[in-house]
Amino acid sequence: MLPAPDPGERLRASLRLVLLACLPGLLALTWLHGWGTLLNLLLTTTAALATEAVLLRAQRRPVRAALGDGSALVSATLLAIALPAYLAWWVPVIASASALALGKHVYGGLGKNPFNPAMLGYAVALVSFPAQMTQWPGPQPLDLGTSLEAVFGLAVRPDAWAQATVLDVVRHNQSLTIEELFGQHPAFGRFAGAGSEWVALAFLAGGLLLLQRKVFSWHAPVAMLGSLFIMSLLGWNGSGSDSNGSPLFHLLAGSSLFVAFFIVTEPVSGPRAASARLLFGAGVGVLVYLIRTWGSYPDGSAFAVLLMNLCVPALERWAARRQGQPA
């Protein structure tokens, strides 16, 4: 008789696959922006592991086994990807410590968090340091020395290293048509942001790997991308100056594909029933579009995910009633 599979080992294997699937996106971001995202990763990982160790020791729980499960490393990696490159070093550190402390341990640790830790850490940084969090670098890689100087405040940042994102440009555009924006503004590429289109496709490739390996089901990512596509199609009025952008633009711009495959699929803070996952993903897609179009933030993915995290208990009760089970 074969021994039953170890749930802990299955979890660790899934988390290792998530880290592997992040690699194409990390490489694409490094190609586009240089060392900034890797420095983010170094800072968020260090802060996450240190915070995890301190809080585990404070709770008199075994440190080595908990650090070895990989959950803190995955949260830190996803947060590093989501943050703008070349942030001052203390922003990723505070965001990562907040993700682990407020997004995980305050609720009892792994498996008990109602909110996505990476998105909670991102939201803390965005609300606390709005000026720094809106400084997105343009597609001009900085060398390692300049990158270290920028992150650790050792020198003045190079001129014109940051620029508005395509989502920000479209949201504030009042006079140029979409075709003119794509033809004249340096932030625009062929379908969305210059270079960032390839980053989005790299995360799509990683997400499809996870889907093929059955790390998660298709329900939440397909529902999110489908609802974002439908909302942007309904709000698209062609190439006019008041256009909110095409469906393809919204799918390839910002963090859409990254969030669809690496954030809304997080198993603990999301619903478990397939029908509830469909509604969860659809809700995230709708909120992303609404925040992009009429909100105060160009992307808004973190807030969309956190708001839908609040709805998970209601979605689970609805799914249970639908299946004739006690809510």
Rank of each mutant, 00 (worst) to 15 (best):
F216K: 07
W236Y: 14
S232A: 11
A304M: 00
L252M: 07
G238D: 06
L209D: 02
W294D: 15
H250E: 00
V305G: 07
L278Y: 12
S241I: 09
W218S: 13
F280I: 02
S227Q: 09
F303K: 12
L248P: 06
L307Q: 14
F249E: 03
I291A: 04
A282Q: 06
G240N: 10
G245L: 14
Y297I: 13
P313Y: 03
L209Y: 07
L306T: 13
L248N: 11
R213K: 06
A282H: 08
V264N: 06
G245H: 11
L307F: 10
H250P: 03
G226V: 01
R213C: 07
G226L: 01
E266A: 14
G226I: 00
A260D: 00
H219L: 07
A220D: 03
V286R: 02
Y297S: 11
F249T: 00
V264E: 15
F280H: 02
P313C: 04
R213L: 06
N237T: 09
V305A: 09
S227A: 14
A223Y: 07
A223I: 15
L252W: 01
S256A: 12
S275A: 15
L251N: 07
S239L: 15
S243N: 06
R213P: 05
S232R: 07
T293D: 10
G226K: 09
T293L: 10
G281Y: 05
A282W: 11
T293R: 13
G235T: 01
V312Y: 05
V264T: 06
V286D: 08
F216W: 03
S256W: 05
L278K: 05
W294A: 14
T265F: 03
D299P: 04
R277G: 00
P313S: 04
A220M: 03
H250L: 08
S227P: 06
